[in-house]
Amino acid sequence: MGFLATTGKYVLFLKRVFSRFEKRTVYLPKIIEEINILGISSIGFVAFVSVFVGAVVTLQVAYNMENPLLPTYLIGLASRDSIILEFSPTMISLILAGKIGSHIASSIGTMRVTEQIDALEVMGINSASYLVFPKICAAVFINPFLIILSIALGIVGGWLAGNLTGICPTEEFLIGLQYEFAPFTMFYAIIKTIIFAFIITTVCAFFGYHTKGGALEVGQASTKGVVYTSILIIIFNYLITNLLLS
């Protein structure tokens, strides 16, 4: 019953977000601001994680390929596919759920408990649309770029690890990267990223928007937002993979 009620409330919340828009001139600067807050400020973190996880993926693939009959370039190929198909779109989205999701839930939650959202409503502004719509637009726009960057840096990390440890020379790694590359995998990664960006922003905003109480409840809303977002990302990851790759 609680689950159904929450789902219903979430759908009604989305209806409010996508209705009664304010003046168009209001949204553009807010979207640019959110791109900076949610996306640009995450570049360093995403780059750091991607390089190291890319390196670890390559080392693990090499560790599992002890058979001398298997060509070395398979290390590059397996690393590429792991990074494009799963690590970058899913794992980085999960990490972003923690970073930007908690930011969204806590900032909107704080606005709720300090009556800033009520102030918007009294001014005749659709607070849900004004606060959440720019965040959705920003994340759906910028997250694919973050994921593309993550894929590139993950592969660079893998190449560095393979080269520095001597388990996969540059030429072999490059052959692996190019071997039977299907551009559709990139499309799949971007589709997943866009859906995950929508989930991160709307679910966390939903929990922040419906915060009641004080600082403690803002923290709880933030935690709830991140947990539910992570669960939904895992479920949708399976559903999208089943739809697009099976």
């Binding site: 704080t110 606005m111 300090t114 009556e115 800033q116 009520d118 102030a119 009294v122």
Partner: peptide, 10 residues
């Protein structure tokens, strides 16, 4: 409207 805690946008 003037709210109890002012409700200015931080």
């Amino acid at each position: 409207m003037v709210f109890q805690g002012s409700a200015l946008f931080d």
